[in-house]
């Protein structure tokens, strides 16, 4: 009997041990404010790009300084060139109108309020029907599927609809509340993931976007993560249309880390964290990016 209980105890111990997280390393944590002006203490570049209408184009013309503008010179109204992002907005509008003939696509996306203008600024958010926090692109896939339409998260058509909806909210500040409940939990998980080292090089997102902002990786200069969410999805010549979560996948691949699928919980948690750091910054789409 004694041996039996000993065996049982050993089994239980090994079971709980298996629950423990194996050895992990984290970049040193920083204090982040879930508000775009928090960048003042992170990279200090906020002063240069906080006012989209008044960017100093001389900084943009200097490759050693344009990181201070955090790509905002590639956003409207500064960048007035017609590029692939504009075609994507048009395509997104057509697809949206096809799907919304009876108004049920919009009511699905907005959980019945019917408002389309406020969608980009308010996502990711808790979705009771899904039982978790979801990004706008995941919800576009979900609401399309209800009508038998395939709009996979990260696909061109999905991002085009997302970009069209973002364009309706142009000028509106991003505004997600991460102060309590499931949104706070997602934010905290995302912040931890941002600092978790992974992959062949043992890099965390923070290895670059927190601790080496403004430094050069040969031809690439690293920018702050604050303010990014307000211009996604972006047009890229190489990737056509890139959602925020596909940008995570690209950074993962670039740093020899196996990427995850868009819509996966870790990427959505990262999106909540990154979006919260854009709170208060106005949506400006369609934006363009280098290569």
């Amino acid at each position: 009997m004694k041996t039996l209980s000993f065996l049982l105890a050993a089994l239980l111990a090994s079971a709980t041990l298996a629950q423990d997280i194996p050895y992990r390393e984290y970049e040193p944590f920083e204090r982040y404010e879930p508000l775009v002006s928090g960048d003042l203490t992170l990279s200090g570049t906020y002063q240069y790009w906080k006012d989209p209408a008044n960017l100093d184009y001389r900084l943009a013309g200097n490759p050693d300084e344009n990181w201070k503008l955090n790509w905002k010179f590639m956003d409207p109204p500064f960048n007035q060139a017609v590029h692939g992002g504009h075609f994507a907005v048009d395509r997104g509008e057509r697809l949206f109108k096809q799907l919304d003939v009876y108004g049920n696509f919009a009511s699905c996306l907005s959980e019945r309020t019917g408002s389309q203008q406020n969608l980009r600024a308010g996502y990711p958010r808790w979705r009771a029907d899904l039982g978790h926090v979801a990004g706008l692109e995941e919800v576009i896939e979900h609401c399309g599927a209800k009508q038998g339409r395939v709009l996979q998260n990260g696909s061109y058509d999905n991002s085009a609809i997302s970009l069209y909806l973002a364009s309706l909210g142009n000028g509106q500040p991003i505004n997600i509340d991460v102060s309590a409940g499931p949104m706070k939990e997602a934010y905290d998980r995302g912040r931890r993931l941002f600092h978790t080292k992974a992959g062949a090089f043992n890099f965390a997102c923070a290895s670059c976007h927190t601790h080496n902002i403004g430094k050069r990786l040969r031809g690439n200069v690293i920018t702050t993560i604050y303010g990014d969410a307000a211009h996604y999805p972006v047009y890229r010549t190489q990737y056509m249309l890139q959602s925020l979560q596909l940008r995570f996948a690209e950074c993962n691949l670039d740093t020899r880390t196996q990427p995850l699928r868009p819509g996966s919980q870790p990427y959505t948690d990262l999106e909540v964290f990154v979006t919260a750091l854009t709170n208060g910054y106005p949506i400006s789409v369609p934006a363009e990016r280098d290569w």
């Binding site: 061109y156 058509d157 992959g199 990737y239 995850l260 870790p266």
Partner: peptide, 30 residues
């Protein structure tokens, strides 16, 4: 390791084999 491929005017996201394989190292998955 697969890399996502965006197909213009398509609702599907394609995945193609990546030039390198990273499956032996830690990911950000829970």
């Amino acid at each position: 390791t697969m890399a996502p491929q965006i197909i213009v005017n398509s609702g599907r996201l394609e995945w193609a084999p990546y030039k390198r394989d990273f499956t032996r190292w830690l990911t950000l998955s829970y």
